[in-house]
Amino acid sequence: MFRGVFLTMMLWSTLSAADISFEQLNAIAATPETLTGQFRQQKYLSELGATLDSSGVFSYRRNESIRWETLTPIQNVLTLTPNSIIGSQGEHEVLRLDAKSNPVIGVLSDVFFSVLTAKWGNLSAYFSLSGVSENGWAVELMPIDTTVMQLMEKVILKGDGLIRELTVYEKNGDTTTIYFENLIQ
């Protein structure tokens, strides 16, 4: 089950006391129609004290789909739409999740979409926010939705016009950090 989740990036930078609201973020962060780029992902597994590194390319179309292609160490394509998550390797579909039959998937998909497309309005339904805007912005999201609470402890996002880093802290001590690079709108 997708109970523990998500994107990560260690953004240990101290957040200053200057509060920032979802509305203010709207003004700073762009919400592009499309975005492509590369990512590096580090998944820290506390149980093993090991980190799983992976990297690849991604592209998204607002409100339509996110294509998340891992190139190393395995080749795997994850396609997210607001209603489903489909995983495939080569020609084999290895995973298919339907948001309708599984609201958790719906919530995850919604959160992931909102983060990448900087739809702060959507995120406010799931998280409370605190953060700073200084050389871009950095925000800490604390879950307020009970479903999200089961999945993650907190999420930290950092960016300028676009998102640059994302970290998800899970309850069991695992973290997932994603760095976004070479972004093209």
């Binding site: 997708f2 989740v5 992902q41 799983l52 795997n76 994850l78 995983g87 992931f112 994603i178």
Partner: peptide, 22 residues
């Protein structure tokens, strides 16, 4: 290998599942 592919897919997914590899 099919089972392994599925496990890898979810392990490397940004939305990966909470699993214990042990």
């Amino acid at each position: 290998d099919n089972i392994q592919a599925k496990a890898l897919s979810s392990l490397y997914s940004p939305l990966g599942a909470r699993v214990s590899l042990i």
